[in-house]
């Protein structure tokens, strides 16, 4: 067939329009197949966890699960609170005041995932190494966190994050 004729028809408005509409339709049709990988409705519904903290004594900690991640809930001793506050002035890689990291000074609530590459730091149980600053120590690549969960030494760039939470009563918190 005559090529010149082909080229003339292919530039035709109708063909460009059909091709455009077809491509746009295909592009839109791709979205459901991508969006299905996002969290499903039941996963999102589990986005908050309620926790009874009445059993945690001073100086003790428990590990709760929130969105599949460990959450450290610790009732700090007066000494730990004092160190944390004093260290506000220390040379912090990720400067933050202890007061900004807690709602009630005795309760420290953190997402227990090392900000380096995602290991769970040690320091929850009484026998665990707590690192050079008396908080947590990540055994994977040696990050040290203080009694406010702030990064002090090691490869981790940021403090242990504080999850969104609220005290629903004196003895229960809702995380998420």
């Amino acid at each position: 067939m005559a090529d010149t004729h082909d080229d003339a028809t292919r530039r035709d408005f109708l063909h460009v329009a059909s091709a455009t509409v077809g491509l746009v339709g295909t592009a839109v049709a791709v979205w459901p197949f991508i969006d299905q990988m996002n969290p499903a409705a039941d996963t999102l519904a589990l986005a908050s966890t309620e926790l009874d903290i009445s059993g945690i004594e001073v100086g003790m900690a428990i590990t709760a699960v929130w969105r599949g991640k460990p959450v450290f809930v610790r009732q700090r001793t007066a000494e730990e609170i004092a160190t944390a506050a004093a260290d506000d002035k220390a040379d912090l890689p990720d400067p933050q005041l202890d007061a900004d990291r807690v709602q009630k000074t005795e309760w420290l609530i953190l997402v227990g995932v090392c900000t380096h590459l995602g290991c769970v730091p040690l320091g929850q149980k009484s026998g665990d190494p707590k690192g050079d600053y008396g908080g947590w120590f990540c055994p994977c690549h040696g990050s040290h966190y203080d009694t406010s969960g702030r990064i002090r030494k090691g490869p981790a760039p940021l403090n242990l994050p504080v999850p969104p939470y609220a005290f629903t009563s004196d003895t229960t918190i809702k995380i998420g």
Partner: peptide, 19 residues
């Protein structure tokens, strides 16, 4: 959407095949 697209394709087809 598919109906509109199909109608457009139909006329494109007619045009291309006219020769």
């Amino acid at each position: 959407f598919l109906l509109v697209l199909t109608v457009m394709l139909y006329f494109s087809k007619r045009k291309i095949w006219a020769s």
